Amino acid sequence: MVIGHGNDYSVLQETINILDNNYVDFFVHWDKEYKRPNLTAKNSKIYFINSINVGWGTDSLMQVELNLLSAVKKTKKYKMAHLISSADMPLMDSDYFIKYFNGERSYLGFSHNNTDDFSDRIKYYWPKFSLRNKKVLSKLIFLCNRLFNINRLKNTNIEVKKGPQWFSINTNLIDRILNYDKKNFFYSYCVDEIFMQTILADLDTNIKNANNDNAQAARYIDWKRGTPYIFSAKDVEELKKVKNTKYAFARKVTDSNIIKNVFN
């Protein structure tokens, strides 16, 4: 399942080339603001779902994920559902990928080292437009919610969990996600890092078996060198060392030649 945008889709096309297989299909949402990419595959099927406008930090990102999960559910033939962006690259070849994700477990990351109160993201009402780089407006909206004593979590038993947006889950969890009462998750802020972890809180069992929440989700992401770090040509040897190990995808990549070089 791919969330993509922009006019350059070469990274996604190269990802498809690497994972192209009769057992791997692609469900793509491309932001409505941009022209749908012309993607091709020899063996994999490529499905496009209806496009909507996606705003950073808004509940539209959650809606896209739900739409993708709904599309996957209708086929009733997959063991696993993986969420990636069009700026992710595979770190497994197709044979290793299929054997590794055999449906026996799910990969979802949970954050435990941050002391922030993430419940504010759904406890208060937030606009449906992006607040990226709008710190003053964000603070004003926060104060307005506090002034009017807004608390959408009051009289609920929701325990808010947080983690990375990207995941690889068994498809038998999709009904549980789609059927969950998500009214509190709309009109929210950065809910894409919250709603899956909150709904599937019982999957938070592998803390000691992963270096961080991204590793739990089988993703190779570096937040120390960037926000996140964008891998470049000088990182090819680093990426080769983690190829066909425990990481399904690396994020973030903007040059498709990196994928070609990692996979020779």
Rank of each mutant, 00 (worst) to 15 (best):
residue 134 K to M: 07
residue 158 I to W: 06
residue 126 W to M: 07
residue 137 L to S: 10
residue 105 R to M: 15
residue 141 I to H: 00
residue 86 S to C: 14
residue 111 S to D: 14
residue 145 N to S: 04
residue 111 S to R: 14
residue 72 V to N: 02
residue 145 N to T: 05
residue 65 E to T: 15
residue 137 L to F: 00
residue 133 N to A: 12
residue 107 Y to G: 04
residue 112 H to I: 02
residue 128 K to H: 09
residue 86 S to I: 12
residue 71 A to Y: 10
residue 165 Q to G: 06
residue 172 N to Y: 14
residue 157 N to F: 13
residue 120 D to G: 09
residue 129 F to H: 08
residue 70 S to V: 05
residue 101 F to N: 05
residue 72 V to E: 03
residue 83 L to Q: 08
residue 151 N to W: 02
residue 147 L to Q: 01
residue 105 R to P: 00
residue 126 W to Y: 01
residue 167 F to I: 01
residue 150 I to D: 01
residue 99 K to P: 01
residue 81 A to H: 06
residue 167 F to P: 03
residue 173 L to F: 10
residue 80 M to A: 09
residue 165 Q to E: 11
residue 65 E to Q: 15
residue 94 S to C: 12
residue 110 F to T: 01
residue 85 S to K: 10
residue 89 M to F: 07
residue 146 R to H: 10
residue 69 L to H: 03
residue 172 N to E: 10
residue 97 F to K: 05
residue 125 Y to E: 10
residue 101 F to R: 02
residue 111 S to M: 15
residue 78 Y to E: 01
residue 86 S to N: 15
residue 122 I to R: 07
residue 88 D to T: 09
residue 163 G to L: 10
residue 66 L to F: 13
residue 121 R to I: 05
residue 114 N to G: 03
residue 114 N to P: 04
residue 65 E to N: 14
residue 144 C to D: 02
residue 160 V to T: 00
residue 165 Q to V: 12
residue 79 K to Y: 00
residue 152 R to I: 08
residue 165 Q to S: 04
residue 155 N to I: 08
residue 96 Y to G: 07
residue 92 M to R: 03
residue 105 R to L: 12
residue 113 N to W: 14
residue 93 D to R: 09
residue 165 Q to K: 14
residue 137 L to V: 08
residue 90 P to A: 11
residue 150 I to M: 09
residue 93 D to L: 10
residue 142 F to W: 01
residue 133 N to I: 02
residue 124 Y to L: 12
residue 140 L to N: 04
residue 145 N to Y: 10
residue 173 L to S: 02
residue 66 L to G: 02
residue 98 I to M: 09
residue 78 Y to L: 08
residue 165 Q to M: 13
residue 77 K to M: 12
residue 143 L to V: 05
residue 132 R to K: 15
residue 70 S to F: 11
residue 92 M to E: 10
residue 159 E to S: 06
residue 164 P to W: 04
residue 94 S to R: 15
residue 137 L to M: 07
residue 167 F to G: 03
residue 128 K to I: 01
residue 68 L to E: 00
residue 141 I to K: 04
residue 69 L to T: 06
residue 144 C to K: 15
residue 162 K to V: 11
residue 127 P to Y: 04
residue 163 G to S: 08
residue 125 Y to F: 14
residue 120 D to H: 01
residue 167 F to L: 05
residue 129 F to Y: 14
residue 173 L to I: 07
residue 119 S to L: 09
residue 84 I to R: 09
residue 125 Y to Q: 06
residue 140 L to P: 06
residue 126 W to K: 00
residue 100 Y to K: 15
residue 92 M to A: 08
